[in-house]
Design a protein around this nucleic acid. Structure first.
Lengths: 345, 345
DNA sequence: CTGAAAGCGCTTACAG
DNA sequence: CTGAAAGCGCTTACAG
């Protein structure tokens, strides 16, 4: 319709109003340096032309990309079925979008690729900072971000967090205690735990915490095993637990996916849930309500955790100093997978 | 360690080598305009300094952002548990990343927000093009992208696709036929279908195709109902089907999530799968193997579809002309949810 | 307090 | 074939 396809720039506004581009910039950014009357004319003209700031040009002047990077290292087949990452991505995106910024995402099968991606992103000025999740034991990414000086927030960091990095820290103690108290309150005495690979830092931390608390509350050291997230390996780990001399009557799984895999295959495992074995999941998700029995789980607000990570990182970008926040606490949602236990102790 | 925190630029290289920035740019981009000897020195110096092109600066010169936008309009709670979007996002990201580009993602609950986000992205130069999914009947987004002239690819478009837009088109006919033939081959004669909301264009298309094919193959018009993706509504829609005068002995669900919801709650619905009702899912995912019985489903390669969408859009960006590709065909994976039907016809 | 000028890090049309 | 200059659309330090 004769509409210009070229997008209006501050030069167009400056020409129409008869001022310099600098004056336009000051007016549009609400800075002093231009009279009230001129400012009003500039704003009206910008409005009329439908001007919007060009993000790329603004970034080049600011030497800020306006993006925060997240590398997700999970096999793509797992990614689809594990709700955590999609929720985290959505949470981070919302928090950044609200602020006119964006999430730069990379998905890779190989954990070893992450550091290279960070390096490349940083060298090409594509990110202002990073969000790290699923910290490993002796995670090599920490050396990379420290060496390059990339502003970084660790989500779900241990306390104290890695030096020089911002962090959203979580104390698993209360959650572990709540899990044990819930199950002990139902009469369970032999409570085992299944978690993901041992090189995940949170798996190692929770292992230690669970052992200490179980000893305190139940008077015995619990059995804990690790497994990869693949379905057959989860079932194998569970079989191994159940084949022991004193099999557990309750098992705490470190994620929704692990627990759902087991409940879905209970018949094949030769167990009834919860009559033979109660099942509790560390992470709640709609998956826990898709299977029967529905799974008792700890809910937490991943959206809020993502927003906290962005808030903390943003503050570090502003001040240059690492910042800290607390993970939202988890709350227990009791469902059928831990109900009705009535075995003699 | 005394390392410069400032990233090297082509000006640094030009100074060291003793040439202009233009010459450095030509050399680094493999263009003619600089002698072989100079080119070699420039490349060596760039390598030694660890130079990487600044993406933002390059974008400003090119007037290209290097990003492709995707707006996902699903409630965040659903997003987590529905594998499709995470797989699509991963697929798009990989295809773009391989090319040095990136995916700009927005997540919103309200479909009506999408057009505004496109408008804002385009006005601020944040995207070079868009990927549209889940086209609605009379989708208002089409008018917006046409009005603004945004290069756009529609994934899963009808044939013929909307004028002026690139598309990855899929013909559901063979899949619908395969579903009906599989179920009819097992002896089923009353086959119903449950799909998502009626305003999804693909739901409407498949409805029409299913009705025609069922009439051809079974000699009767099948019952088809729509439902929102919420768990209780899916169950209600299924109950409604089963309460009819001639209840179906097999139901085709339009997604993995719909089918899994029903199989997970079969006991509550008062049915045994597959003895009373066979269940077939349009989209395969690991969810279909998490529940018992495992669900017969149509697999398709979402990664490949995402890559095809990016390839087609990239070609449009290069040539200015909309391009087309075919969706990868779906293949039937038979599992227990359609096995062992033995009712008298 | 106001305004013309330089600069962010690239690319490319244009004159020698 | 080679090289100095202008430009992409912004921001901001600096001189009046």
């Amino acid at each position: 319709m004769g509409e210009p396809t070229r997008r209006p720039t501050i030069a167009d506004i400056a020409r129409e109003v008869g001022v310099t581009k600098g004056a336009v910039s000051f007016a549009l950014n609400g800075r002093p340096g231009v009279s009230a009357a001129t400012r009003a004319r500039i704003l009206a003209t910008a409005e009329r032309l439908g001007w919007q700031p060009n993000t790329v040009a603004r970034s080049l002047s600011n030497l800020r990309s306006g993006s925060v990077g997240l590398v997700v290292t999970r096999p793509i087949s797992l990614l689809g079925v594990e709700p955590f990452y999609m929720r985290l991505i959505a949470g981070l995106e919302r928090a950044l979008h609200a602020d006119g910024r964006s999430l730069l995402l990379a998905v890779t099968d190989h954990a070893a690729d992450a550091a290279d991606i960070y390096r490349s992103w940083w060298a090409s000025g594509r990110v202002d900072g990073l969000v790290l999740t699923d910290l490993r034991v002796d995670d090599p990414r920490l050396a990379t971000v420290a060496e390059l000086g990339i502003p970084t927030v660790v989500l779900g960091a241990p306390s104290p967090p890695p030096p020089g990095l911002s962090a959203v820290v979580g104390d698993d103690g209360p959650t572990l205690r709540a899990a044990l108290e819930h199950l002990a309150g139902l009469g369970h005495r032999r409570i085992a735990r299944v978690s993901g690979p041992a090189d995940f830092a949170h798996a190692a931390r929770r292992n230690a915490g669970f052992a200490a608390l179980a000893t305190e509350l139940l008077g015995s050291t619990p059995t804990q095993v690790h497994t990869r997230y693949l379905s057959d390996q989860v079932l194998a780990a569970t079989r191994e637990l159940l084949a022991g001399p004193e099999p557990p009557t309750a098992i705490v799984y470190d994620s929704d996916l692990l627990a759902v895999t087991v409940v879905g295959s209970a018949t094949e495992l030769g167990i009834r849930v919860p009559a033979d074995v109660a099942v509790l999941a560390w992470d709640d998700s709609p998956l826990c309500e898709l299977v029967r029995p529905r799974i008792t789980a700890f809910s937490h607000d991943i959206d809020a955790d993502g927003a906290a990570a962005i808030a903390v990182l943003t503050e570090q970008l502003r001040t240059g100093v690492p910042q800290y926040a607390e993970l939202a606490p988890r709350t227990l949602t009791v469902r059928e997978s831990t109900a009705g236990y009535s075995k003699p102790v």
